[in-house]
Amino acid sequence: MTSPAGHVARQVLGGALLRGARQDLRAVAKGWRWGRRSLVPRSAEPFQPPRTSEPFPTAWARSPVASVAREGIQKLGLAPLLRSQVAPVVHGLDVLDRFGGPVIFVANHTSHLDTPLILCSLPDRWRRRTAVAAAADYFFDTWWRATGSAMVFNTFPIERRTGSLSSTPGDLLDQGWSIVVFPEGTRSPDGWTRAFRHGAAFLAVRHHVPVVPIGIRGSFAAMPRGRGWPVPGRPPVTVRFGRPLRAAEGEGPRELGARVEAAVAALIDEDGSTWWDATRRAARGQTPSTSGPDVARWRRVWTQTQPPAVGKNRRVWR
């Protein structure tokens, strides 16, 4: 029979307490995936309650101090890192010289590379005043992920499960911030685009701002869903900006949304051919579908994992 003091002494001095703590910590860190996204057992998914947490505040990330810090992070860290891992080619930026902000940038979404690609493609004056809509349930599920993404990418949370539209994007547009929206709601699982939701078009109509379509090619091949880092070999990625679209008199979100979706498809087509060919196909209503052929999933993935054929610079001196 051990006395209470003997028990405590044995635990502390004998190292059992420390050993046990270490074992427990290890088990918890592994079981609850410290540093990674927590997962719900598959059979429990139908019983998960919808997240009703308060939106994570991100106004601080747009303060002058945070903006200066982000400028440094993006220019000195993010952009060089991005260019060291992929070979981005940007077209059509001249459209931004023709008017001032704010605008809604709308792009197809196949990879986590898309946001840094767009931000690093933008001219400085645009980038500094651009915020990015990010899924509340994905980027804002833990404080550290939320803080990190708000700091580096100037993200703000958007609730994509309930379909409700936060007031934040509208407020940002009213304050003169441009925003980046991926209207598919999530990254494409196979590289082909999915149907666009009309949230971005709704904002454009309601706040009388133009939509700038962006077509991105090659990001799926560079870093598809499931990868945490781009594939080796600096794969090429193209980012093509299109002419701004404004809601016509009496035009609703649904109609404008359809035009935006077509514009993004045309930009992707243009990237694979030429502006003239793509424009003619678009005029005939023959822009190739960006939702891909109805074939086996592996064939869809196979096609999209082909890096885009980026024309090599013609050698002037032979």
Partner: peptide, 24 residues
């Protein structure tokens, strides 16, 4: 368990060590 946040994980770890240290 899969819904445990920081509070529950910390509470569990503290309870485990506390109970181990506590005399019977």
């Amino acid at each position: 368990e899969w819904e445990w946040g920081v509070r529950e994980q910390a509470g569990m770890l503290a309870a485990r060590r506390g109970l181990a240290l506590a005399p019977k």
